[in-house]
Nucleic acid binder design. Structure first.
Lengths: 330, 330
DNA sequence: CGCGTTTACGTCGTTCGTAACGATA
DNA sequence: TATCGTTACGAACGACGTAAACGCG
């Protein structure tokens, strides 16, 4: 059993049990890869794939079990490679960031500018999705770090660096009757009306749904989108009442954002999340440090290395934004 | 970077940075191993060992970090090897069991008899220690399973199968004044007297110390031993009042075990603990099944594979002992 | 000089690529 | 007949062991 064999096995699995395709991804020949597979199977003493005629039809039970361990093994091999690259001062590399459109647009951008300045040879791949997708991508090894939000505690089995706190805002077309009230807006003003918000707020467990349910109300999220610009555009078009992250607010003349009574929609925290077992390259740390100016780099290092919790408080969005901008220029 | 190189690196570290010694353990030559190390270091691009003159003086920082990942990587390689051995029907193997003397003597024995009957070619290594040592051995990869006890919930980050519940008993030399009371014994009868018990009960956080402290008393564990036989022998010799696991009770004529008031010393549970990331060979499962007859094997499999909790209640020691004996004969 | 590591060199085994083959839809 | 996996063969590379050299206590 060798690393090459396991890498080949994984590549075959991840290319739909197609040796030819996998060989291309590995820059190897079909022949060689086929032989590697045979060798691995003889080394283990049992077939890893079901074979129909001369095609790979699927994993055997043994293959399933071996695959799980092979993934972890190769992940550690990648970790050692990453360590090595850092120690050698390798400037090239890739950073895969799982995040939502909102964070990618409003929070990630300044960090990426700092990264581009200091690490111009690093390729950045944004893996889009909602908050749940991002956690999954992190767990599956499809992302190196994630920029995600939530209302409660950060997800367990992740290293979480809180970046900033933010609130959702209600937006209305100018002239909408709810815009002319002489009091703060309440949730029952919104109940029964068509809402325009993020796709994830339709989910039963979402904090929006829970906030309404707690007061015996129901939220009718009739139009959803992934990004705040669209939500506001739809609101302008009269499709409903918008609920959008404050970071995305762009009111202009034809849109107003009335004040909502305090704490009716719980505040969100945006975290930078790291998988606990994956080595973060130096440029990944640089991005982290750029996005978390409220934490001293040495504290961040200690968090990652030893799990020592961070001390600094989590700033509000506007404070955080200004700090990051100031830090970036410096 | 190859598996062989990493195995060599680990062997050198675990043999006190001595290539010659490590080569012997690996059944290889010094020369070959030395070259493997050089190759690994050139592959990673940085030295892993500090070198003074021509001797390895210690790990570099890089070596420390690589070592941690290499251990996990090689642990997964061992897992795949274990899977392979099971699938091939390999009957040989080794099982390392971390446990205390009490469990080894009174709980493990029937399981080992079943193992010896069905898997005669398996080598069993008992790794002795107290409950904390056993957890450490499990975490460090020095043991495949552990048989340990505690008063509360089972340790997290382990798969725990509860085996049985047991209590501690007070033993006195025949004719001791406390043996003639016409009421159940209380903890304040024992406070201020010299106690003979397990070494772990001297620790400040032990359940014995906590039980006394809760009532404002202090336990004076003046004589300690690792096994119940010794504790009872010392008690016979008049060295103090014995406190011993009920499994170890062997009273005879010159020793009595008065009844203690209910729940003054909390009941203990003995668990069979498995590290979550290590593959359990079939013979390990056989031992587990023999020691946990109250659980259906299929439920145990599900617990190990998917973490599905067990349903059955945990029997008392005497019930468990009789069940295991009956099962063993069948 | 003993100890332990490194280097030199020759042999063996293994891997990889090209190319042909077999089998299937 | 196109596609995909397997097999055959030859060349190149790498690994391992023997043996000698090197540096320190």
């Amino acid at each position: 059993m060798t690393l090459t064999q396991l890498r080949g096995f994984l590549a075959i699995v991840e290319n739909g049990h197609n040796i030819t395709l996998a060989a291309q991804h590995l820059h190897a020949t079909q022949s060689g890869l086929s032989k590697q597979l045979v060798q691995l199977e003889t080394a283990l003493g049992c077939p890893l794939f079901e074979r129909r005629a001369r095609a790979l039809a699927g994993l055997t039970d043994a293959g399933q079990r071996v695959l799980a361990h092979a993934r972890r093994l190769l992940a550690e091999a990648d970790n050692i490679q990453a360590l090595s690259d850092d120690l050698r001062g390798e400037r090239r590399g890739a950073l895969r960031i799982a995040t939502t459109h909102t964070q990618a647009r409003h929070a990630l951008a300044p960090g990426l500018q700092a990264l581009e300045r200091d690490w111009p040879e690093v390729a950045v791949h944004v893996v889009p999705g909602d908050d749940a997708d991002g956690l999954q991508a992190l767990a599956d090894g499809h992302a190196d770090l994630a920029l995600l939000s939530g209302t409660g505690a950060p997800p367990a089995d992740c290293i979480a660096v809180p970046l900033y706190r933010w609130r959702r805002r209600v937006v209305l077309p100018a002239g909408h009757p709810l815009g002319g009230l002489d009091r703060a807006l309440r949730l029952d003003d919104l109940a029964g009306r068509r809402l325009v918000s993020y796709a994830s707020s339709r989910l039963p467990g979402s904090s929006l749904q829970r906030a309404f349910a707690q007061r015996g109300l129901q939220a009718d999220v009739a139009v959803t989108a992934r990004d705040g610009d669209l939500i506001q555009a739809y609101t302008r078009a009269g499709l409903g009442i918008g609920i959008v992250a404050e970071m995305a607010l762009e009111l202009g003349e034809d849109l107003v954002a009335p004040v909502l009574e305090d704490a009716l929609l719980p505040a969100c925290t945006t975290w930078l999340l790291l998988p606990p077992t994956r080595v973060l390259r130096d440029f990944g740390f640089a991005l982290l440090a750029a996005l978390a100016p409220q934490h001293a780099p040495v504290d961040l290092r200690r968090l990652i290395a030893d799990g020592q919790p961070l001390g600094a408080a989590t700033p509000e969005w506007s404070t955080w934004r200004d700090t990051v901008r100031a830090t970036r220029v410096a």
